[in-house]
Design a protein around this nucleic acid. Structure first.
Length: 111
DNA sequence: TTTCCGGCTGATT
DNA sequence: GAATCAGCCGGAA
């Protein structure tokens, strides 16, 4: 462990854990807060590693900008779980896996 | 170090 | 909001 600071992966996890219940955040914002506004894809890749194994991180509150549950590949089955969890928190999710993030997206403030 | 891949984003349409 | 194209970025092999 040579990095004095948290790795990008750790930062992303920390940000996702800070997302309040009933709110959602897009990958771009999480990536930006983590230090790389263009590394949105990495965020998704990292979330893949915590989903199914780590329940302390509300990865289901992270969606893409279009409000779509962008889960693909391995987590394809988790897509239904994500929708269920979001609805349980009060977030409206369409049967087509789309979220009204215009109302549920968390306000990110750049200090 | 180079190469590849991936839960994306922005600009257009 | 939805579909298509091209560009970015970090981690693993």
């Amino acid at each position: 462990m040579q990095n004095k600071e948290l790795s990008f992966k750790e930062k992303v996890i920390d940000v996702v854990k800070s997302i309040p219940r009933g709110k959602v955040l897009n990958y771009g914002s999480v990536a930006a807060i983590s230090g790389s506004p263009r590394a949105s894809r990495q965020v998704g890749s990292i979330l893949t590693g915590i989903s199914g194994e780590n329940r302390e991180v509300p990865w289901w509150r992270v969606v893409n900008k279009a409000g779509y549950l962008s889960i693909r590949g391995k987590l394809y089955d988790a897509k239904e779980l994500q929708m269920k969890l979001l609805i349980d928190e009060g977030v409206e999710v369409s049967k087509d896996y789309y979220i009204d993030m215009r109302k549920y997206k968390m306000n990110v403030n750049f200090s």
